[in-house]
Simulated assay, not measured.
Amino acid sequence: MQDNMLDSFNQQTRQFFEPMRKLNSLMLGNMEKMTEYQLEAMKRYSQMGAERMRRAAEIQDARDLQAFGAKQAEMMSELSRQMMEDAQALGEMSQQFRTELEQLFGEVSQQITERTQEAGEAAKTTAATAESPATKTEAPAKATSQASRKS
């Protein structure tokens, strides 16, 4: 009997913490994905900046400066395009996370509803058993006041 109670308690505890475990897993996975993407983006931007600094250090005359200026405009255009792509990718990741989060909350809500209904049915069954005619007595109540105890 005690083993059954412990097994039941363990099962209920697992069921109670399962939604939180799923939520934590989902949030951790999203955080890892976003962090990895942002680190890669930062690496790309750093490489672009370092490359531009190298090219600037190599300028020796007016012709090199003119070529550097033209390349700088191309690089700024490339940087702008890359930033737009990164923003779009991060937006898509956020949307995917939101969808997964909504799905998880929907599942948890459904589970809670089902458990509540099961608990309600169990309570009704318990109440019906407790109120069975065999346990009820229809005897009148006894008076216990001081006035009814006169000797």
Results as ranks from 00 to 15, higher is better:
E32Y: 06
Q95R: 12
G106C: 05
D7P: 01
K150I: 11
R149A: 09
M1A: 14
A70L: 13
T35M: 12
M84D: 06
M27V: 00
K124L: 13
N4Q: 08
E32H: 09
L65N: 02
E92V: 15
Q2K: 13
E40H: 09
A89P: 01
T99E: 08
G106M: 07
E121I: 01
Y37C: 02
A147W: 01
K136I: 12
F17E: 04
Q88S: 12
F68G: 06
R52A: 14
A134Y: 13
T126L: 12
P133F: 02
T99M: 11
Q72I: 01
A73E: 10
D7M: 13
G106W: 04
T13N: 07
T13F: 14
A50V: 03
E92M: 12
P140C: 07
K43T: 08
A56G: 01
Q111F: 08
M31S: 15
L104P: 00
L90V: 15
G29N: 14
I59P: 00
P19Y: 03
R98S: 09
A147L: 13
L23P: 00
R115F: 04
E36I: 06
Q95N: 05
Y37L: 09
S94Y: 05
L28P: 00
N30D: 01
L23H: 10
F105M: 05
A143C: 13
G69Y: 08
E107H: 09
A89C: 05
Y45F: 04
D61F: 00
Q60V: 11
G69W: 11
N10P: 00
Q117Y: 05
A50K: 13
F16N: 06
Q146N: 03
V108F: 12
T125K: 15
E118D: 14
E121L: 07
Q110K: 09
E78G: 07
Q117D: 08
Q11C: 10
R98T: 07
T144A: 06
Q2C: 11
F17P: 00
E131M: 14
A50M: 12
L90W: 11
G106R: 11
S145G: 09
P140G: 04
R55Y: 04
Q110A: 12
L101C: 04
N10E: 05
M27K: 14
A62F: 03
A122N: 04
D7K: 14
Q88D: 03
Q103G: 01
A139E: 13
G106E: 13
F9S: 03
P140Q: 10
E107Q: 08
Y45S: 05
Q111Y: 10
A127I: 03
L39M: 11
L101F: 14
D61T: 07
A73W: 10
G91V: 15
R63P: 03
L26R: 15
T99D: 08
A122D: 02
T35D: 04
F105S: 06
R81P: 00
E107D: 06
Q2H: 12
Q60I: 11
A73Q: 09
T35K: 12
A57V: 09
A134C: 14
